[in-house]
Amino acid sequence: MDLKQMGENLGLEPVEFADIVTLFVTTAESDIEKIRKGVLHKDALSVSEAAHSLKGSSGNLGFLQMSDVALTAEKKASENNLTGFEDMTRILTDHLNEIKTLLKQV
């Protein structure tokens, strides 16, 4: 991932894009946490809503792998299927950690 290039693709200056990604990290952490808690409490609706939010924001910024995983999570939760979420939240967290590392380099 090249944050500078991703920002340019969106017509944004590096600083502008970094600001938005910083905000994304905060909301994504919150969304992942909501997914974890929702699975724990078998609350498929809140899992679906959090996954939907994450899918949109990550996709809009160009973090497409995260968006794909979030899409799968949203679909499964909307079908009331809360299996396989341990792996998905781990993958999402790994992607987010990678973004945080890249963000520090900007």
């Binding site: 994304f24 909301t27 924001s57 809009n60």
Partner: peptide, 16 residues
């Protein structure tokens, strides 16, 4: 939009 990231992104792009 209920997602602040989407709001921020649109706000930044449109303000430019």
């Amino acid at each position: 939009d209920d997602n602040p990231v989407n709001v921020k992104m649109l706000e930044t792009c449109l303000a430019k």
